[in-house]
Design a protein around this nucleic acid. Structure first.
Length: 810
RNA sequence: GGGCGGUUAGCUCAGCUGGUAGAGCGCCUGCCUUACACGCAGGUGGCCGCAGGUUCGAGUCCUGCACCGCCCACCA
């Protein structure tokens, strides 16, 4: 055994062994009936591991390993999401390099290309999860495009259809001009942009005066259908009901009143363009206005733009502005910084436009999900996210589920020659519904990626087939994910599970911390602030990286800190070395829990207490607090006190001491295994007479044989500290004396404090304790145990003062 | 504009139902001790963001303010 623990080789060896021996598989280590199930948030097939994945992987793996050791039938379900728009984006970019577009090669060939690409370069992330030591059941890898999974998606759609929750409507949507598809509000990211705000005069049709409006997009003037003002706005009271002339197109449109207009913005008058603005669309619908569009799906001016047809919006805007300037209708222009919606994948500016899409109503599905959350059948951790989840379900707008993409699940909708939609699981069934001989055409659209993700907890188990896994592993226990995913995924899994299986898919949702860059900014590729988790894994080991990420995960947003990972590496190294100390002296000795001496009972009790504390932390999903418990029991208690105290007997090959030390070590690494699986398994493999792997070995049961008679040990520790600080020996007897002598080696301890300084310190403590005890309010009101503790402290300080010969102060 | 979170040692962060401030790193001092120098022992270091309030007692509870961050949002 090397004196410096080298994680790289050890970790990869164990990762291979565990997987090959089937110890990652569901049911490995099972010794009881209950199941414990987590479905991993399926990463995009195109994705690579980022810090959030690594933290989330560590969190879930701790829970899974902890429960596996407790004998649960654990299933940690892995797999990939086909990630419709993200994947299509990647393949389209590749085609672009070859000078091709998807339209040139056609849909069929494009889908083939995508599959080919996935076979070659996709699916890298589960390899990275393996390197983290994540004990997913890789033999059960699923993909949202697997044939069985597709069947689940179709079944889901048909069920929603039968409820009447799916409808088709012409509404304003977020249109990505690059991808040529509608995207949901949740796929739009807002970015700050510098624009110009123009103030444009619209003359009244009767020639008497004008009304000014503000706009950043002059090209949309062509599609104006009204000017709106706030009903209470005194300035425009007279204008309501009159007509104005829209510039350039010289169309007469009404001035209307609507409360959605903010009188304090710009001129207080808003031009209404229902075709190209969501607010205007709402106002237009409320007032029964027409909905013309002047901009097409490609982002350029369309056939309604007259002589501007075919121009870009910027060019068209310039022409309109020139027209306005000629007629002196351009009142002002000013720089204007505001946030603009962009496509989260390609960052193209979103075109709001009206388009015919499929929608899913939300009132029906949301109702039981809201009830389940209110009844705490699903709990969010931290609690603050619970209200947010409920609120977002209550306010959920209808879900636009169709996408004009090629990569994804094509809608199970066919049209008759009359344009009547027929919904069915398969083409054959659709044909049967429509009647023989009726020619059907399938809707070309695909479903929003999240439509299939919503089924992840049970489609991966084989639903809608009558699979035994569904009965056994549904519902699961925990889902752990990032905050921004609550509305996209968590809520939808909850309502789909209730709808299709009559039960929530899990009982606890962990919303883990967001790992920020060390400077506090968001980690992102475009900002150059991203840190690849594989770097610390290579450099310090997976155990250390897991430990470090868990340690910093206490608050909502945490800064990445390499220091925390280094601490994890030190812990692994420490563990490794204390194991060497014991094992080097343990030839042919069998571990045996036979504590005779104080320090032996003490350490076994300490490990047991730490077990309780760590379990309590994990039980409430406080992984940061648990790491602290593990660190201190290892360093402070096991290494600095217990190992030092038994060293002399270890060197003497005292069989009792060695056997107990082996047993204590065994218990310590069992406790640490969920967080540091590799180094603990490696040490375990060196313990004598080991048959099972640690990963499937029984978890620690509470053991009250070890009376926590720690008083004497604490006194020895205090005496050691005084001696090391001041060189003064406190009187000790029995166990206290023996432990002190074993741990403190006077010949190597140079006191660098001095008696005077120590007396000074103790006098201060005595004064402070007396001040408190003299406070009548404190003695009368504070809880009895607090007062009692203060009395004991005072007594101890006085004792120590006396030992140091400074009793005069008392 | 809304929601959530943060502000404590030089840095990164703990501090549960109020009891008189802790950890890791860094720094200083002494140690190459038959597990570990990625180590051991000891130490330095804090008007706990600001201002009020409740209380015998406030980092902790209440009110207000100021910054910072994340998420969300249709102000043209």
């Amino acid at each position: 055994m090397e004196s410096l623990y080298q994680p790289a080789g050890v970790e990869q060896r164990w990762q291979r062994t565990w997987e090959e021996e089937g110890l990652y598989a569901a049911g490995a280590g099972r010794r009881r009936g209950e199941t414990y199930v987590i479905a991993v948030p399926p990463p995009n097939v195109t994705g690579e591991l980022h810090m959030g994945h690594a933290l989330n992987g560590a969190i879930q793996d701790v829970l899974i390993r902890w429960h596996r050791m407790q004998g649960f039938d654990t299933l940690w379900q892995p797999g990939y999401d086909h990630a419709g728009i993200a994947t299509q984006n990647v393949v389209e970019k590749q085609l672009a390099v070859e000078g091709l577009s998807r339209h040139e090669i056609g849909r069929e060939r494009f889908v083939e290309r995508t599959w080919e690409w996935l076979e070659q370069t996709g699916r890298t992330i589960l390899g990275q999860f393996r390197r983290l030591g994540a004990s997913l059941d890789y033999s059960r890898e699923r993909f949202t495009m697997d044939p069985e999974y597709v069947r689940a998606v179709m079944t889901f759609f048909v069920r929603l259809w039968e409820h009447g929750w799916i409808y088709r409507d012409n509404r304003i949507v977020n249109w990505c001009p690059f991808h040529q598809t509608a995207i949901s509000d949740l796929e739009v990211v807002h970015e700050e942009m510098d624009d110009t705000l123009y103030r444009v005069r619209y003359p009244f049709a009767d020639g008497d005066g004008a009304i000014a409006v503000a706009t950043v997009r002059p090209a949309t003037i062509l599609a104006d259908v009204a000017v709106a003002v706030h009903p209470e706005d005194e300035r425009y009271r007279e204008a309501i009901g009159r007509e104005v002339v829209v510039p350039y197109v010289e169309r007469h449109v009404p001035v209307i009143a609507d409360e959605r207009v903010d009188p304090s913005f710009g001129t207080g008058a808003l031009k209404i363009t229902p075709g190209h603005d969501p607010t205007d669309f709402e106002i237009g619908r409320a007032h029964g206005l027409p909905e013309p569009m002047a901009i097409g799906p490609d982002g350029r001016m369309n056939e309604n733009a007259g002589d501007l047809e075919g121009l870009s919006q910027d060019e068209a805007g310039e022409r309109v502005l020139a027209w306005l300037r000629e007629r002196d209708q351009l009142e002002a222009r000013e720089p204007y910084r505001h946030s603009v919606g962009t496509c989260e994948r390609c960052h193209s500016r979103i075109e709001p436009l009206i388009s015919l899409q499929w929608w899913c109503r939300m009132e029906g599905p949301a109702r039981p999900a809201i009830a389940a959350l209110r009844e705490r059948r699903v709990r969010y951790h931290p609690e603050s996210q619970h209200r947010f989840a409920i609120q977002s379900l209550e306010e959920a707008p209808d879900w636009c589920i169709s996408r004009q993409l090629w990569w994804g699940h094509q809608l199970p909708i066919w049209y008759t020659p009359d344009g009547e939609p027929v919904c069915a699981l398969t083409e054959a069934e659709a044909q049967a519904q429509a009647g023989a001989g009726v020619e059907l055409t399938r809707d070309p659209d695909v479903l929003d990626t999240w439509f299939s993700s919503a089924l992840w907890p049970f489609a991966t188990l084989g639903w809608p087939a009558d699979a035994p896994e569904v009965a056994r592993y549904y519902p699961g226990n925990v889902n752990s994910t990032a905050r921004e995913i609550i509305r996209l995924w968590e809520n939808r899994m909850i309502w789909s599970g209730l709808e299709l299986l009559g039960d929530v898919p899990f009982t606890d949702v962990i919303i883990h911390s967001t790992v920020l860059a060390p400077d506090g900014r968001r980690m992102s590729k475009s900002l150059g602030t991203g840190i690849d988790p594989m770097e610390p894994i290579e450099q310090h080991g997976a155990d250390a990286t897991r430990y470090g990420l868990l340690k910093i995960s206490s608050t909502q947003d945490v800064r990445f800190s390499i220091g925390a990972i280094e601490e994890g590496r030190k812990l692994a190294n420490k563990l490794w070395n204390v194991a060497r100390l014991i094992l080097q002296n343990a030839e042919r000795v069998t571990p045996a829990v036979s504590p005779r001496r104080l320090e032996e009972r003490w350490i076994l009790a300490r490990i047991d207490a730490a077990r309780g504390e760590a379990e309590e932390c994990w039980g409430r999903f406080d992984f940061a607090a648990a790491t602290s418990v593990l660190y201190h029991v290892t360093f402070d208690d096991f290494c600095d006190w217990y190992a030092e105290a038994i060293k002399p007997r270890l060197y003497d090959r005292d069989v009792d001491a060695v056997a107990t030390a082996l047993a204590a070590l065994e218990r310590l690494i069992t406790l640490l295994h969920p967080v540091l699986p590799h180094v603990t398994e490696e040490i375990w493999s060196h313990l004598p007479n080991r048959r099972d792997r640690l990963i499937v070995s029984p978890w620690l049961e509470p053991d009250d044989r070890f009376a926590a008679d720690s008083e004497a040990l604490v006194r020895a520790q205090e005496a050691a500290q005084i001696f090391r600080r001041s060189g003064v020996r406190v009187e000790l007897e029995g166990d206290e004396r023996r432990i002190f002598d074993a741990v403190v080696r006077p010949e190597r301890t140079k006191a660098n404090g001095n008696v005077e300084a120590e007396l000074e310190r103790l006098r201060g403590e005595v004064a402070r304790a007396r001040r408190m005890l003299d406070n009548e309010g404190f003695v009368a009101n504070a809880p009895a145990h607090v007062v009692e503790a203060e009395r004991e402290k005072l007594a101890r300080y006085l004792r120590e003062l006396e030992a140091l010969g400074g009793a005069d102060a008392a």
